[in-house]
Design a protein around this nucleic acid. Sequence first.
DNA 1: CGCCCCATTGAGTGGTTTCAATCGCAGTGG
DNA 2: CCACTGCGATTGAAACCACTCAATGGGGCG
Lengths: 243, 243
Amino acid sequence: MLTALFLRGRGRSALDEDDRRALEEAVGEVRTYASRQLLARAGAPLTASTLLLDGFICRYMDDREGYRQIVAVHVPGDFVDLHGFPMKRLDHDVATIGPVRVAEFSHEALEKIVEDRPRLTRLMWFSTLIDASMHREWIFRLGRLGAEGRVAHFFCELNARLEMVGLAANGRFELPLTQADLGEACGITGVHVNRVLRVLREQGLMTFRQNAVELHDRKRLAALAEFEPAYLYGTGQDDAAAA
Amino acid sequence: MLTALFLRGRGRSALDEDDRRALEEAVGEVRTYASRQLLARAGAPLTASTLLLDGFICRYMDDREGYRQIVAVHVPGDFVDLHGFPMKRLDHDVATIGPVRVAEFSHEALEKIVEDRPRLTRLMWFSTLIDASMHREWIFRLGRLGAEGRVAHFFCELNARLEMVGLAANGRFELPLTQADLGEACGITGVHVNRVLRVLREQGLMTFRQNAVELHDRKRLAALAEFEPAYLYGTGQDDAAAA
DNA sequence: CGCCCCATTGAGTGGTTTCAATCGCAGTGG
DNA sequence: CCACTGCGATTGAAACCACTCAATGGGGCG
């Protein structure tokens, strides 16, 4: 079941059997990509959207000097560019972080779902809105938190999201990011990321070494990050997207 | 025609007559609110969504000390909380900036549209994705630009959006924001906003006084802001949401 | 007139950046 | 087996941007 992780952990938004089957039937090609591959460029027209099965993908924008700002990180179960279906082109680049496996959905197939399946359509719409919600939280993070809070928040979010799809437990998970990447996601320099990580480590909050993350004190880390997971619309948090 | 401004300026995404009529029929109450009114609180369940007819509305989140981060500013023609339809609750507060007039759409009525009108559904979906696109641009702005670039970018965006709905011309428009508000949108303090505005004024780029904005040199301002309006999916910019 | 909100300006502080150098480690080729 | 190479992590020092604290000024309104 390729689509098993889609909206996993999002409570009542679970797909029913019928919709699940329809989504599964809409799967086109399954592809693999190596680490650090560009998958889509800003502005290029799209004819298919991509569900991430394994690995990590990021979306980012370049500034005039070529420095990147990562605007989203995706984990397995995420539809990476479902917004490309209504929009037809993207306003950012998409690239793999580590090696990945993805499933492609042609826009034709999605079109058919919109025609025939209002409930599934609303769930797909919902999934793009979770992305928007995470965007807002990132705006908050960049606008209101200092470097330590930003980094802490980033890891709190990723931990929560990976837990939902069974890829994190007890605050441990794998994440193939460099410190420079982290900086590009948190709006600080790679050098400063290093110093921040040292502080977090010395305070017994978390460690991030050789792509392995370990959150030692999630409570204090969340406090530092002002992290409140409601924006992820996870299970048990109210009736998000209830029928 | 209450919905006349919805998706105005978004080129091929214009609604056809039939969909326009259906949307118009879905309008419920039309309400007015005074300046600085709280319209919705984070977490509260929603049963209707709001189309902004006149005035300005912002969405924001509070940090632990009560300082706000504005995550979106809405102009007439924007669906302020259409994402509340699939999501059923919000992850942020919503408040008026100046006095406003809005039209409410019950979620029941929207439900009917999703059932019956796949094309209109996709356009509503599209409109929530433009919001997400603007969120991403704000992430870029906060992550990569300095204070001057951020403020410049904010005004470039608002100018472009207000032009689309006929509320700005030749770089002039009204905007009932205080300098402190601006700071909350740009991730800087109100005091520093003041200094930045002075610099922009002295360089002949723009003025912002008594709620009146005047962009004197849009080209240089856009350069400073690294502003590229493609993310707004306006008319003439490719085939966004083409049928 | 007095009050309050908002804009404005100054001085000092501090967080982050920049520039630079060093170190560790894995891969490669001799 | 070991030098060589390159990338990422780490640390230091100096510069700078934006913040904080504080005070003044201006304008609308009761």
